[in-house]
C-alpha cells in the first residue's frame, strides 16, 4: 500500500474476505459499475453536464459584457455565436443545460423521497433523456424562427 499523507485515505482502505488489504474505489465508482447501465450512466452524465455548463457560463458572461460594451463588441460576439463553431458550441450548451435541469428535477424528486424503485427509476430516466431532446429542439426552433425573421 502506497504511503499517503491524505487523512481521507484511512477510510478508503478495506480488507477482502481473505484478509488482504484493498484500496476502495473512489466515488462515484467509475471503475466498478457497468457504465452501460442507465442508472449509473445518467448519474455521471449529471456531473459531466453540470461541469460543461459551468464552462459554458463564460459565453453568458461574454454575451452580457459585450452587450454592455457597445454595438461593436456586440457584433463581434454575435459573429462568433453565429459561426459554425459558435452554433455547435451553443447547441452543446443547450443539450447540457436541459439535461442537467431535467436530471436535477429527478434528483429533487429523490430528495423528496419519491421514485426509488427500479421501474420508476427507469421511467424517470427515459423521461429525462426524451425531455432533453424535446426541450433542446424546442429552444432551437424558437431561436431559428427568431433568427430568420
Amino acid at each position: 500500500m502506497a504511503h499517503s499523507n491524505d487523512a481521507r485515505e484511512a477510510v478508503m482502505i478495506g480488507r477482502r474476505t481473505d484478509g488482504t488489504i484493498i484500496r476502495r474505489p473512489l466515488s462515484p465508482h467509475l471503475q466498478v459499475y457497468d457504465m452501460l447501465q442507465m442508472t449509473s450512466a445518467l448519474s455521471i452524465m449529471h456531473r459531466i453536464t453540470g461541469s460543461a455548463w459551468a464552462v459554458g457560463l463564460i459565453f453568458l458572461v461574454w454575451f452580457l459584457a459585450a452587450t454592455a460594451a457597445g454595438p461593436e463588441a456586440y457584433a463581434r460576439m454575435q459573429w462568433f455565436m453565429g459561426s459554425f463553431f459558435g452554433v455547435i458550441l451553443l447547441f452543446g450548451i443547450t443539450v447540457a443545460a436541459w439535461y442537467h435541469t431535467l436530471a436535477g428535477i429527478r434528483h429533487l424528486m429523490w430528495d423528496y423521497g419519491y421514485g426509488y424503485d427500479i421501474p420508476t427509476t427507469y421511467r424517470t430516466g427515459w423521461m429525462v433523456i426524451i425531455g432533453t431532446g424535446v426541450m433542446t429542439i424546442l429552444t432551437w426552433i424558437v431561436a431559428i424562427i427568431a433568427w430568420a425573421s
Binding site: 457584433a75 453565429g82 443545460a97 436535477g104 434528483h107 424558437v142
Partner: peptide, 23 residues
C-alpha cells in the same frame, strides 16, 4: 436549484426568441 428552474426556463426562451437581434 429550485430557484434556477424558472429562471433558466425564462432566460433560455427569452434569449432564443431574440437570437440574431440587433444591439
Amino acid at each position: 436549484s429550485i430557484g434556477l428552474l424558472p429562471l433558466t426556463l425564462w432566460f433560455a426562451f427569452s434569449i432564443a426568441a431574440r437570437a440574431g437581434s440587433p444591439w
